[in-house]
Amino acid sequence: MGLLDKAIAWGEKKSPWIIHFNAGACNGCDIEVVDALTPQYDLERLGILQQGSPRHADVLVCTGAVTLQTRDRLKQIYDQMSTPKFVIAVGTCACTGGIFDSCYCVTGGIDTIIPVDAYIPGCAVRPEAIIDAVSKLLASLDRKEGKRE
């Protein structure tokens, strides 16, 4: 790995920009995600910024079980993000489908449609859990770098 690659890998860890997508949640987890972005929890000290466009973002933060309505949209938004990209499933429904699993209009958890890098169980998750998950995801990037070397 050259010096520039190392610098870029460092930048990747220090500046994860997130985009938030509701795949069919009851809105409980979304409120907690928004809560985590408020000055009270100050995610910018980890370099996290919320972006409007999927093209600018690195981490897709998904809430809720995937419904038939949002299935194609979720795939589309994931495809619109530029690589390297990561996905965090927020809440029990996003991890497994939760109480909505095997409903007639629900496909299941987020990982039935797109690959997921971090799971945060909870109903609804706490903002502290979201921050913990993001910092653990960044730490796991470190380990992946180690493997590549």
Partner: peptide, 8 residues
């Protein structure tokens, strides 16, 4: 960090 990440 933002700049380096975007370049990569």
């Amino acid at each position: 960090a933002d700049m380096l990440k975007l370049v990569g």
